[in-house]
Write a protein that binds this DNA or RNA. Structure first.
Length: 322
DNA sequence: CGATGTCAAGGAATC
DNA sequence: GATTCCTTGACATCG
């Protein structure tokens, strides 16, 4: 018997939706305190819906690393009590938290300013989780970054960037295979060098797999990087297949033409057939948490769960029981 | 009120 | 060397 938490990222869409963080511009004085109130409401919803895994927005502490706005830089310590409270609540509920800085956080950038900015961002993410008192399963997920100079040089720059981090930020960081430059096997030597695990993204693997590994083999590589006692996690999504539209100006009229989506684009929901294949095949008997990356967010999770439960899988305390 | 512009930030491909 | 794509929403401003 194996168990898998299922999670979703950032936005809550169900029942009219919930705000995920204070998105006001800096002129309006946004603050982590407000984001944490919103997060409290999201935890209520997670409890109600029996969901035990959630990705926090990277912008939870707004403007916390803007070089020109030092007035935002102390939000984590200003909210120490609120963070401890909300973290205790997440722990009591068994909600596994993570965050995933986006394309602008490039720890292996050739530009030292960009690299330092990425390091600063990772420090904040790590400090947030530490202040929440979360265990080692709460990780900050990052891609390797740019590929300039070749894979080895790119990995080397990443390792340098990793060296800029505090011990606490290092302990949170995990690396994810991406969809065009660094497959699982490309990430592996870096993961080993810095002693941090790999989050395996199944769709990315299908997009970029230079060695031609099966999902099972690639998954096995990633699983081997997780220490005993910390449940591994993976990302799962289905590719968008619906045709999009592109508009183009021809003279003064606008012409619309259909666009076939790229494989990497996320669908609204998760294909339950492909997901079941993963559960019954490559995932085997391992306990692995699964972050769903679907545009439909919590709605996609609940739909998938309904499908799976309808097909005989169990659901207990936020975990799929296989 | 609805439409449009803007937002911190990178990298890679393309011209 | 400059522009566009990637991809995303929501705030802010304009008409």
């Amino acid at each position: 018997m194996s168990r898998h938490r299922l999670g979703f990222a950032v936005k809550v869409l169900g029942d009219g939706g919930l705000p995920s963080h204070d998105t006001r511009r800096w002129q309006s004085g946004p603050h982590l305190r407000h984001s944490l109130e919103m997060f409290g409401a999201i935890l209520d919803r997670l409890e109600r819906d029996d969901v035990r895994m959630y990705r926090l927005p990277t912008q939870l502490a707004p403007y916390a690393t803007f070089p020109d706005h030092p007035e935002f830089h102390d939000q984590v310590s200003e909210c120490a009590e609120e963070l401890a409270a909300v973290g205790a609540r997440a722990r009591d509920l068994g909600v596994r938290l993570s965050s995933h800085p986006g394309q602008y956080t490039v720890l292996n950038s050739e530009n030292p300013d960009t690299q330092r900015a990425a390091a600063a961002e990772l420090e904040v993410q790590g400090a947030l989780f530490d202040a929440m008192g979360l265990g080692p399963e709460a990780v900050v997920i990052l891609h390797v970054g740019g590929g300039a100079g070749g894979k080895e040089a790119a990995r080397e720059r990443f390792a340098e960037g990793f060296g800029l981090l505090s011990e606490t930020a290092r302990r949170r960081l995990v690396i994810e295979n991406d969809d065009r430059s660094f497959g699982v096997v490309d990430v592996l030597p870096l993961a080993q060098e810095i002693g941090r695990p790999i989050v395996f993204d199944v769709l990315h693997h299908h997009c970029y797999d230079p060695e031609g590994l099966t999902v099972g083999d690639a998954l096995g590589v990633a699983m081997g990087t997780w220490p005993a006692g910390v449940r591994p996690k993976i990302h799962y999504s289905s590719p968008r297949t619906a045709l999009g539209e592109k508009e183009r100006k021809v003279g003064r009229r606008i012409e619309r033409s259909p666009v076939v989506p790229q494989l990497r684009a996320h669908a609204d929901t998760v294909d339950p057939i492909g997901f079941e294949e993963l559960l019954r095949g490559p995932l085997g008997r391992q306990d692995v948490d699964i972050m769903l990356e679907a545009k439909g967010k919590d709605l996609a999770l609940k739909t998938l769960r309904d499908h799976l439960v309808g097909r005989g899988f169990g659901w207990e305390h936020g975990e799929l029981v296989v």
